[in-house]
């Protein structure tokens, strides 16, 4: 297995002098090709900042990020991001198909017909065939987030970054989307780095879970997830491995308590993180 993402000594500080706020402090980890890695951390710990540094949206104040060996300065060509707030991330004036085609418009050597074909294909991956002509607001929240996943996949990125992608949908939809993401990832061998505050989600989805500390974010643990690749919302969550892993992550996050915490859904935390100050 080759290394897709290599993060070394990554730090980010907002502001300077006395008002400086260190959001991310000296993070080092790698993500292998074909792996689904989850980063879990408490709300406001700097997860979004970390993701924005990796995606090249902001330049870290320290450390280095390389994507398949190339140093990241600015957003790399073969990277895509799925944001939490799908209703703002999808462009309301473009139809679903036009939204998915959006990042393909400036791809060279891609004819109109091929572009359209790719968009339809990506929509079928997320089980949304035949809605291309609709506008995003005509779809449910879960469907909208599937459209933004399709849009990211249509670009065939080497690395897919997801920032709390399922935090704004209801619990039922969230389960569906988690299963969908796993099956898409398995089917295409995509490399995905997903950030979440939800312990259960990180264990259920990940091949690996990276646990972050409170702000400034440091890596507390890097746990391999010993669960079969095919997962099931009921049996997997009942399995012994899942329960013990979840407990371990919870203890690491909360510094020792043994009650596995029920993570709240749909918390608006990350919009208030300092990342929006950038």
């Amino acid at each position: 297995m080759s290394t897709m993402l290599n993060v070394t000594g990554l730090s980010h500080r907002y502001g300077s002098g006395e008002n400086a706020h260190v959001a991310v402090n000296d993070l080092t980890f790698v993500v292998e090709t074909g792996e689904l890695a989850c980063i879990v951390g408490p709300s406001g710990c700097g997860k979004s900042t970390l993701l924005r540094c990796i995606s090249g949206l902001i330049e870290p104040t320290g450390g280095e990020v390389t994507l398949h060996g190339d140093r990241v300065t600015g957003v790399p060509e073969d990277l895509a991001v799925v944001f939490q707030d799908y209703s703002r991330s999808l462009f309301p004036w473009l139809t679903v198909r036009q939204n998915v085609e959006f990042p393909l418009r400036w791809k060279r050597n891609l004819s109109r017909a091929e572009r359209r074909e790719r968009a339809e294909e990506a929509l079928s991956w997320v089980n949304l065939p035949g809605v291309g002509g609709k506008y995003p607001w005509q779809l449910s929240g879960g469907m909208q987030q599937r459209v933004s996943i399709a849009r990211a996949l249509a670009r065939r990125p080497a690395l897919l970054l997801m920032d709390e992608p399922f935090a704004s949908v209801d619990a039922q939809t969230r389960f569906e989307l988690e299963d969908l993401l796993r099956s898409v990832q398995v089917a295409h061998g995509s490399t995905i780095l997903l950030v979440t505050h939800d312990i259960d989600e990180s264990v259920y989805l990940g091949d690996r879970v990276l646990v972050l500390s409170k702000s400034p974010a440091r890596i507390v643990a890097d746990l391999p997830v010993d669960l079969p690749p095919e997962r099931d919302q009921i049996t997997t969550r009942e399995s012994k491995n899942f329960v013990s892993l979840r407990g371990e992550v919870a203890r690491l996050l909360h510094g020792g308590g043994d009650a596995p915490e029920q993570a709240p859904t749909g918390e608006p935390a990350d919009t208030t993180e300092p990342s929006t100050l950038a």
Partner: peptide, 21 residues
């Protein structure tokens, strides 16, 4: 809005498309 700007930037949207689309 900021998310729209981030989305476009994450796709490396060229200036021309950014303005017209």
């Amino acid at each position: 809005n900021a998310t729209q700007r981030d989305t476009a930037r994450s796709f490396r949207t060229p200036q021309r498309y950014w303005i017209t689309l």
